[in-house]
């Protein structure tokens, strides 16, 4: 997703106003040294409608309601992902008790809290995802919302960091000869959760960029 500068849009507006054809404007910009993505972004700001003056296309605006929806969506996503991981960790601890750490063999207090969190946060997350999906289907311009994009990239960042730390833990375990079934299963759980979150939201962002 490229950003267009004020000058660029002003230029396109003036050129369209004088009746220049779109391909000629694009060629002139390309010759001047602008990147094709930036050119496309500026051209897309004005609709291909026959009118005396160039007609601007609708743009997404920052809305507090949207910020609320996306914040709740990603908060419940983080809660679900973290507590699902924590729950699976405790179940793995129970299934493969380690004599070397007797206090880590499936703490029921932790299981209780994780189950409670997942039971509440996951359905809320699903409902919000469906709701937002419907809104996007009706008004695809909302895909370009800044709130949506920033929070999605933030989630990608968190998932990427989690994945990197997980791999570091794996290598560290390998070097330390710490490879038990318990350890490997835990590494796999973290990798699976982080990869699913990362993969889905990256795909979602690509869809946004194609729709732009």
């Amino acid at each position: 997703m490229a950003s267009s500068t004020q000058d660029l849009e002003q230029f396109v507006r003036d050129a369209l106003g004088r009746g220049c054809s779109r391909p000629s404007i694009e060629k002139a910009l390309g010759d001047a040294g602008w990147e094709p993505e930036q050119t496309r972004g500026a051209m897309a700001a004005y609709a291909d409608v026959d009118f005396v003056v160039p007609v601007p296309r609708p743009r997404p605006y920052v809305s507090a309601r949207e910020a609320f929806l996306y914040l709740v969506l990603f908060t419940t996503l983080y809660l679900t992902a973290y507590h699902l991981g924590s729950l699976l960790f405790e179940l793995i601890n129970r299934a493969f008790p380690d004599a070397a750490s007797p206090y880590n063999n499936g703490v029921s207090r932790s299981i209780r809290w994780s189950v409670s969190s997942v039971v509440i946060a996951f359905p809320v997350f699903l409902l919000l995802s469906v709701k937002i999906g419907k809104e996007l289907a009706q008004q695809p311009i909302k895909r370009l919302s800044a709130v949506r994009r920033w929070l999605t990239y933030l989630t990608l960042f968190v998932a990427a960091v989690v994945l990197i730390c997980d791999l570091i833990t794996l290598v560290d375990g390998l070097l330390g000869g710490d490879i038990t079934t318990r350890f490997v299963l835990k590494v796999l759980v973290v990798a699976a959760i982080a990869t699913v979150v990362f993969g889905y939201y990256l795909w979602d962002l690509r869809r946004d960029e194609r729709a732009a």
Partner: peptide, 16 residues
């Protein structure tokens, strides 16, 4: 994902 979550929750409840 729902199936995985449900399975984990049920396993947790059976432990508790």
């Amino acid at each position: 994902v729902s199936v995985v979550v449900l399975a984990a929750v049920l396993a947790g409840l059976s432990v508790l």
